[in-house]
Simulated assay, not measured.
Amino acid sequence: MRLLSFNMQYGFGAEGIYDLTRAAAVISGADIACLQEVDRHWSRTGFDDQPALLAEMLPDRFCVFGPGFDMDASTVVAGRVVNRRRQFGPMILSRWPILWSRVHLLPLAAMIDPINTQTCALEACIAAPSGPLRVVSVHLAHVGVGERLAQIAALKAALVPVGPWSGVDDEPLRNWTEGQSEPPCPAEMLWLGDFNSEPGSAEYRAIVGEVPYHPGARYRGAMVDAVAALGLHLHSHEKTIAGQIRRRQLDHVFVDASLAPRLRRASVDAGCLASDHLPLWVEMDL
Rank of each mutant, 00 (worst) to 15 (best):
L234Q: 08
V168M: 08
L286K: 08
G46D: 02
F69P: 00
V211N: 11
L4A: 09
A266R: 03
Y18C: 09
R86I: 02
V208Y: 07
E56M: 03
C185K: 04
G193H: 01
M223T: 02
S101Q: 09
Q87N: 00
A73E: 01
Y213E: 12
L190F: 10
E147L: 05
A78F: 09
T21L: 02
N83P: 07
D113N: 14
V82F: 12
G68P: 15
V81W: 07
E147F: 05
V38E: 00
Q180M: 14
M111T: 15
L263Q: 08
S43Q: 15
A109F: 07
A270M: 15
E182G: 07
A14S: 15
L273M: 12
L286A: 14
H235V: 14
E188N: 10
G66M: 01
Q151Y: 04
L278I: 04
H41Y: 10
R218T: 09
A14H: 06
A128T: 13
Y204H: 15
F254Y: 13
P51H: 07
I92S: 00
V64P: 08
S74Q: 04
R246P: 12
L278C: 04
L93W: 09
S130A: 15
R248P: 05
R95F: 03
Q151A: 12
R80G: 04
L173M: 09
G89F: 01
D170W: 00
M111N: 15
V82L: 12
L93R: 04
P161I: 09
I241S: 05
S101R: 04
P59R: 12
I245R: 14
I115Y: 11
A242Q: 10
M1G: 14
L234A: 13
F69C: 07
R102Q: 08
E178D: 13
G11H: 11
V103W: 01
E15C: 04
A154E: 08
G29P: 01
C34R: 10
P161S: 08
V211E: 15
P129D: 05
L149G: 14
L263N: 09
E203P: 05
V64I: 04
G89Y: 00
V255T: 12
A150L: 14
G46K: 00
G66S: 03
V135K: 00
S267M: 08
G167M: 08
A109M: 08
F69Q: 08
T177P: 07
R148W: 10
A128I: 07
E123P: 00
Q50E: 09
Y219S: 06
S236I: 13
